[in-house]
Amino acid sequence: MSKLKIQNLTAGYGDFQALFGIDLELNAKETVAIIGSNGAGKSTFMRSIAGLLKNTPDAVQFKGENIGDLPANKVVEKGIALVPEGRRLFPSLSVEENLLMGAYSKRKGPWNLNRIYELFPILKEKRNNPGTALSGGQQQMVAIGRALMSNPELLLCDEISLGLAPTTVKDIYKAFPAIQEDGTTVLVVEQDINQAMAVSDRIYCFQEGRVSLEGKPGEVSKDDIKAAYFGM
């Protein structure tokens, strides 16, 4: 049974339409990556699932339940957590307070402060610093940790490698096996195609608000991706 089923999802801001009828399915314990160029609608898609943009109820089905019209604070209670683009740490909160905010929904599960500190030991050291005083990579670890603190069944990661040095990106993706081990389903948006291929079971490519390609990393050719990515 599918964990997440997206049916004919459309979204936009005011008069501007960003997504035109997206269909997508995620199976339990799967890791799926969405690739696509800037402006393809990837972030809008993630924000829609997380409830920051409203939809028709059946556009987003999670474990068979229609949640497309739920506000973000209800969506997280259902078990979906978003690591937002740009990390969006709370500047007036310390690292630890940022992490604790993640547990605001009080969902039960394997994650707690200690496990986050095991996953990212550097955060324990810096736990009393203001979140925004950290390096970009460390901030990204806080953002991921904060999302995990809600014990999600589905983790949405939006552009977590954006603006980070390659070695830092590697460090962050090192945490993924531990996350997947718990049976968490993961959906990542990634501009780095190689990174996306490496981490995921399946990929989708978005182009101008539509799905232009779907497949398994080993089965899609470079040319397919080029065509789907750039529309060439």
Partner: peptide
């Protein structure tokens, strides 16, 4: 915890919502 939620919401309403805060 309530105070933390107050400060978080004051910082960034959308992200606070993502944490489960009903603004």
């Amino acid at each position: 915890e309530l105070g933390r939620a107050f400060r978080a919401t004051s910082d960034d309403q959308d992200t606070a919502r993502l944490m489960g805060v009903n603004n």
